[in-house]
Design a binder for these strands. Structure first.
Lengths: 193, 193
DNA sequence: ATTATCTATAGATCTATAGATAATGC
DNA sequence: ATTATCTATAGATCTATAGATAATGC
């Protein structure tokens, strides 16, 4: 039952798309090749026609997750980005959220290939945030450093909030304190110029 | 070859101490009971005389990690804490570092019992940081929110830096930008009062 | 003829348990 | 007698591969 080239490409993309969500939801170790392939409507042996190894898939799926996330925050101003990122909705929907918040801790333990994808993804998020901040009138030499600080705080806020028990007060308090602090930083810097 | 009660307690503590470092280094999924027990000088079957399950150990080891970390940053001023936490040394020594930076992403996928330990641990770190900030003359209603913001940024900075490839410029740039931003926040707030 | 997929399985994990052993604590 | 540990193993994973099948692409 051989298929066309296009259908193979479709299968490949579907596996990557499903993996990108499953990895964010359950972590790299929490997803097995067999279950992933079953969800893609294929048998698990076929996996190795598409990828050299699971790690190969991890790199490709992570790249896709960063791409989606970068697009989501493009063409917005920094305050909107902050409100979207540091929110209960983002915290509670891991599967479609930012991979930096879902997988960074595990990424630190992956091979250098996967870490290179993460480095490029973080760099892209920083670059996007610099552009978003320009819409708030923020530019100049310190803009990049501030973008990095805001990203780190936003990522930290979502990660810490997720680590708290469900429905805990602290989980929501973390989000609100960080959202306001990041907004203040943008507003203050915006007024300076 | 039965042993004394004290020796059992010693074995128990040693398993928890070793696990607390191994989990931070490799993640909860990266540590098997057999290897852990071998490192503790015991056979893996004996594990279940000390713990109901691996998850029981995860809760106890994580509590210990948070305890160590809280003690490390007690009785210091906030600027010293920031310099120690957001540093290459901390980033490169996961096994003895802060569990919030090493394990938060995975904690989000653990049971509510483990998340309760995490919530209490984060709460303790926030409380400690509030006390540290008081040494810089920072107090009042906004102090707690600022402690949360600083903690989130510090945790985010270490996590993102670890996710970057070894020896990448970005990894160090993240640490430096966040360290300076957190210091500025403390200094500015300190001058207000 | 090539190749994308499938079936089946190798080989290496993993957590957890059953039963034996032997020294402490009553 | 109790119990902390050990040996051995059950049962369930996991990644990866070998070989068969069958439809595309030459």
């Amino acid at each position: 039952m051989r298929i066309t080239k296009e259908q193979k490409q479709e299968n490949h993309d579907r596996i990557v798309a499903i993996a990108s969500e499953m990895f964010r939801e359950r972590g790299y170790d929490g997803v097995g090749v067999a279950e992933l392939m079953e969800r893609a409507g294929l048998t698990h042996g076929g996996f190795y026609n598409h990828f050299r190894s699971k790690e190969d898939l991890i790199a490709k799926a992570t790249m896709r997750s960063f791409g989606e996330t970068g697009e989501r925050y493009a063409d917005l101003d920094a305050l909107t980005v902050i409100d979207l990122y540091i929110s209960r909705e983002h915290r509670d929907r891991r599967a479609t959220g930012c991979p930096a918040a879902a997988l960074s801790c595990e990424a630190a333990r992956q091979t250098d290939d996967t870490r290179a994808v993460f480095g490029a993804g973080i760099e892209a998020l920083v670059g996007g945030l610099v552009q978003d901040m320009a819409r708030n009138g923020i530019s100049g030499p310190g803009a990049r450093a501030q973008a990095i600080s805001i990203l780190a705080q936003a990522v930290g806020a979502v990660i810490l909030s997720r680590a708290c028990p469900d429905a805990s007060t602290l989980a929501d308090e973390i989000l609100e304190a960080c959202r306001l602090d990041c907004r203040d930083a943008v507003v203050n810097r915006s007024q300076e110029s």
